[in-house]
Every structure is written in structure tokens, then in C-alpha cells.
Design a protein around this nucleic acid. Structure first.
Lengths: 202, 202
DNA sequence: ACCTGAACACCGTTCAAGT
DNA sequence: ACCTGAACACCGTTCAAGT
């Protein structure tokens, strides 16, 4: 059954989520499409299993190290994981990640946050905000990569009269869009905000 | 042609993005599936047109008002727009929004940020961070709504031993997940961070 | 310029049957 | 317990033909 999940991840990495069909998966496993349904209830559950499996590659946190550093490390790793496996990010955008591994990651984050002095409500809020920011930023970068040049250069034909600032900054905007620096900037601001400025140094 | 876009939005609101097929759209317009292809190049371009059309309902910003208030107002409106039209959020997660209306929204935000004293790079960074946070938070709430109870209560069966904090806070986590308060908290932190604490009062 | 009919190359999944 | 064959009810899109 983890043979099925592994093959699915291989296909999704190679040909994207739209390349992953039950029929293609069956062919790769030299089996009839229907054989898969005896191991997995359906395609949706297969996607859940794939997502949870991917999360296992995330690093654990060092509970004795600086909380701000550890949080930035973990969510940067999550961001990189999404960028490396676009299908995972797409699945997570559609379906909530509620598998066991997602739970373990949440446990790590909540531990760090409460150990840093946040009360329960603040820790939960920080966990959700950091998670949603990371997924939003990842999807943003991925969507731009996927459709690069697909619709011409739309911002090039903008009316300078109606959007002068966008027109003036066009080049800079496009340069900033798909950079680690952009992601790190937002992440750092959120981490600093929740940890109250403490812990950004050693 | 905007008849086609309007009908598409109606279908997507009623039956979700997966209910919007070229054949269903054609049937609603009392026309053959192929007739649509004489007005729109394909389904992907139709989705782009739908997304841009939806953005037109966003409010403009008051350029003489408090920047922090105006930014919170605009991104809260964007969040509500996504929640009201889940298909729009799904489209935006898959394809970058580069239509004319998206450009106008960006223009508004960049104006407010630069008028508040941010330099070009900081304004661009803030625009992207606020946009990606809003979309990530919206998708998170929507994905949980869509699959509520679809896979049982996964967090209920967690091992208290391996994730004690998640286990202890289970109820609070689930309660916080789909609330405006959660979104507003992260948004306020980002806005305050970029505007340097100024402007949160009158 | 605008629409139609028929077809192509796909999907996920059900159902009955085989070993 | 595990797999197969054939079919159902769909997709988006191409192509040639009609008005």
C-alpha cells in the first residue's frame, strides 16, 4: 500500500498533479485500474496519504535552541518542501492536512511557542497564521512558475494612466515575486510579532 | 461574452468549481458546448475572466484615511470575497491573477503603502506578503469547510503520548480554525509590522 | 460571424466475475 | 484476499460542415 503512495508521489513529481490519474498509476504498477481500489478507497484518500507521507521529510525542531530560529527553520523547510513538490501544495490547498504527520508537526510548533512563553490561545493563533502564510506564499510562487509566459506579459500592456505605481515598479514587482527573500521577510515579521521581538538574537 | 462569464460565476457559486464544466455551461446557455469556444479560447481563459470579474466587487481605498485602517479594510474584503466565492479562491490558488482588475487592486495597495512612507522595495514586499497571507488563510478556512467530517474526526484518535499539546488543545484548535478573529489577528500583525506601529490609532 | 454534430482521447468508479 | 473485463457516466477539445 505504501508502494502505491510511493508510485503516486513519483508520478506527481514527474508530471504534476494532473498527470496523476488512477489509470496512469495502475499502468506504472503493471496492474489494472481497479486493483488499486482494493488498497485505497479512492483518489481523494490517496491524495491524503501522499500529503501525509511527504510531511515526514520535514526536520524536527531543537527544543533547547532559540525559538525564533527554530520556527523560521521549520516553516522555511515547509516552504521548500512545497516548492519541491508542487502537487503537495495543490493537494493541501484543496484538502485540509489532518493526517498523523501533520499532527506531529503541529505538536512541535505548539511546543516551541508555549515554551517561549505564549499562552494557549496565542500559540494556536501563531500556529495557524504561520501555516497559512507559508502555504499562501508557496502557492503564489508555484502558480507563477506554472504559467510563466502562458498569457503573454500582461503587466506590460497596462495603462500607465490608471495604474502609475504598478507601471513604474513593474520590473521590481516581477523580480520580487519568486524569491526566497520575499518569503523570508514575511515569515520573519510574523515570528517576531508573535515572539515579541525576543529571541531573534542568540 | 460577459454573458458567458456571468453564467460561469453563477454555476461556480451554486455547484462549486468542479460543477463548472463547459458542457454544463453550454446547457445553461441553451447552446452546444462548442459554441462557447467561439467566444473564449478555452476553459483556462474562462477561469481567468471569472477571477478578474469577481475582483471588481472589491471596495476602493480612501487615500486620505488612515493607511493601517484602509489596508485592513481592503484585505478583509478580499478575504470575505474568497469565502463567499470558493471557486474564485481555488482558481487563484492554481493560476496567478494578472488581469486588469488585479492590477488596479495592486495599484491601490502600493499607493497606500508608499504614501505611508515605505520605500518601493518595502511596499512591494508588503503587497506580496499581505496578498499571499490573505489567500492562504482563505484557502485554509475553505478547505476545512469543504471536507468537514468527511474523514471522521481525525484529531480525536490521536495518541496523547506522542502529541500531548495537540491533544490538550484539540478543542481550542478546532474552534479557532474557521474564525474571522484568527484571520484578523495575523493581518493586523503584518500591517503593524510594515507600517511600523504607526497608524493603528486615529 | 456564429453555431452544430459527431468524434477523439481521455477521466473516476461500479459491478459482476474470476483465482 | 486479491485481481480483471467490461461498462457507465462523464470530461475538454478538434475537425468538418452547416447558416
Amino acid at each position: 500500500m505504501s508502494t502505491i503512495v510511493d508510485a503516486s508521489l513519483r508520478i506527481a513529481d514527474a508530471d504534476g498533479l494532473e498527470g496523476l490519474t488512477m489509470r496512469r498509476l495502475a499502468a506504472d504498477l503493471s496492474v489494472t485500474p481497479m486493483a488499486i481500489y482494493h488498497h485505497v478507497p479512492g483518489k481523494d484518500q490517496l491524495l491524503d496519504l501522499m500529503a501525509d507521507e511527504s510531511l515526514k521529510t520535514l526536520p524536527g525542531v531543537d527544543r533547547s535552541a532559540d525559538p525564533a530560529v527554530e520556527l523560521r527553520r521549520l516553516f522555511t523547510a515547509m516552504h521548500r518542501l512545497y516548492l519541491a513538490h508542487p502537487a503537495l501544495a495543490q493537494v493541501m490547498a484543496q484538502r485540509p492536512m489532518e493526517g498523523p504527520t501533520a499532527g506531529l508537526v503541529g505538536e512541535e510548533v505548539l511546543y516551541v511557542l508555549t515554551a517561549a512563553g505564549l499562552d494557549d490561545d496565542a500559540a494556536i493563533s501563531a500556529l495557524i497564521t504561520l501555516t497559512t502564510y507559508t502555504s499562501g506564499a508557496s502557492l503564489y510562487r508555484l502558480s507563477r512558475r506554472r504559467h510563466v509566459g502562458a498569457r503573454g506579459e500582461p503587466l506590460a500592456e497596462i495603462a500607465a494612466g490608471t495604474m502609475p505605481t504598478v507601471h513604474r515598479l513593474r520590473r521590481k514587482i516581477n523580480a520580487a515575486r519568486d524569491t526566497d527573500k520575499q518569503f523570508t521577510d514575511g515569515l520573519t515579521r510574523l515570528v517576531d510579532s508573535y515572539l515579541g521581538g525576543r529571541g531573534s538574537g542568540p
